[in-house]
Design a protein around this nucleic acid. Structure first.
Lengths: 117, 117
DNA sequence: TTCATATATCGTATATTAACGATATAGTAT
DNA sequence: ATACTATATCGTTAATATACGATATATGAA
């Protein structure tokens, strides 16, 4: 059942530039919160909050790995609107300047170097 | 060129329930501001503002007809992200309770009866 | 011209959102 | 158990968005 509520969850989640940037990072590779934080250059609490909003919308999912939490794009979302929008967003914005810079930073991001500092 | 800015214009425009309702109304038929206002049950200034936001995002377009302004879904949007999202939104939410009620009201709405009151 | 009307814009109050630092929680290691 | 660390949540402030009424603009009629 594709509800208005679920549709608005997706559009609200993707109506913020920071969250679109996170989505495009995660399209490239799975990342933990501290890696996302490092690429964004924002506070840990802020990064965690954005990830939660994307997860609640069914756009990304998290997998615990010990002390870390790996976030990745959702493949089997509970939100029926997520799939089509995920497909679309994956197909665009790769040439956006900020997205490209983020992609480079994400590529180099290493949780072992980033954490415990 | 599909920019981040244009993408965010579309997602922001569709991150508000009132504007999704307006979009689904216009999918059914062209409407003037006073007809949209009557279906929404909101102030004229509010209705006009929402229509402007949807138009700025390239999701709808307006055609002047004397004193009236007819709004309709955009077919040849300047915003390259609009087309795909328009197609998707047209294909969903027809069974939403509020959208259905709006559709009935829109069907009955008559600018000649609504205006000059 | 003047009057009437449909829409757009302005000004403002309220509500929502995003950011931060501080703290709490949960898992690892010793 | 204690100590350490990655993440989540809390509390607050600043920015943004939504709603309204009032006013301005633009078109049509007399």
């Amino acid at each position: 059942m594709k509800t208005m509520r679920d549709f608005l969850k997706v559009t609200k989640a993707l109506s913020d530039k920071t969250r679109v940037r996170i989505f495009k990072m995660l399209q490239q590779k799975k990342m933990c919160v501290c890696e996302v934080q490092a690429v964004l250059g924002m506070a840990q609490s802020t990064s965690s909050k954005h990830l939660k909003i994307l997860e609640d919308a069914g756009l990304i999912t998290s997998v615990k790995d010990g002390l870390w939490v790996n976030y990745q794009l959702e493949q089997h979302s509970h939100n029926p609107h997520a799939g089509p929008i995920i497909s679309y967003l994956c197909s665009v914005l790769d040439d956006d300047p900020e997205v490209k810079v983020d992609a480079k930073k994400a590529d180099r991001a290493n949780r072992l170097e980033l954490c415990s500092k």
